[in-house]
Structure formats: structure tokens, C-alpha cells
Design a protein around this nucleic acid. Sequence first.
DNA 1: GCCAACGTTGGC
DNA 2: GCCAACGTTGGC
Length: 137
Amino acid sequence: MRYWLIKSEPETYSIEDLISEDIGRWDGVRNYQARNFLKDMKLGDLCFFYRSVHKPAVEAVCKIVKEHYPDPTAESGDWVCVDVQFQNKLQREISLGEIKGNEALANMALLKQSRLSVQPVTVHEFDEILKMSEQKI
DNA sequence: GCCAACGTTGGC
DNA sequence: GCCAACGTTGGC
């Protein structure tokens, strides 16, 4: 079991969009590094749903329910997508600012490679963010 | 809206 | 193969 973080701008695809669909196709990735991470995702892996650009924050948890397959939105090239299912919203969202303020999260790819839209998260980072979401500020 | 970071493209 | 120009992402 591995853990991931996937980003989306709310104007493009928000967590509410995923909740209403329940299962959503994570397509449109056009970056090789992100594509390779999509290919590494396995059934049952969990990922954070991260809202980028507008009040950046981790909002929810979702699950990989279909492993990589060719991205139907790609006209050419070896691009893939996966299907993710909504699991739950965090009790409270964890902002990028809070992540930056937590030393245990200092090595997150989110902070080191700000433009990477699909990235791995360690089990420790995953648990830490869940723990933060269960605590009041 | 601005700008830094970074990826891609194309001339040489 | 280098590098300038340009486009995109995403934080602020």
C-alpha cells in the first residue's frame, strides 16, 4: 500500500465534483514525472486530494479504484489516467501554510517540487496530516 | 495580477 | 548538445 497526493485547481475539478461523481477519472496529466507516478499507483492505494492555486490545502482522501490506462483525453503520446473514488473529507482541511509549519513534513515533495501534480507521500507524512486534521488549531 | 520555478521548443 | 525564448503551474 502506497500513499499519494494529487492536485487540482477548484475551477477545473473540485472535491465537490469528485463527491458528486463518487468515482472520477484522473486525466489530463501531461508531465512525465507525474505520469510515471500514475503508473506506479496500485488498486487500493490512498491519496490526498489537494486544492491548488486557490487557498491551497489538503481537503480529502480518495482511493485508487482503477489502475492506469490510456488517457482518452490525450490525442497522442503515452499518457495515462487512473480512476479515484472519494473516501472522506478531512475533519478540517490542512493548508499549505500549516504543512510548511510542521517540521515532520519538511521533506514533502509538495514543498520541494511545487509544480508536480501527482506525487508520492510517505506513510509518516500521510499519518501526520491525518493527525493534524483531527486536532483543533 | 505578479512573478518564480520549471518544462518544452527550436535555432544554431 | 547548448541555451534563449516561451508557456504553464502555482504561491502569494
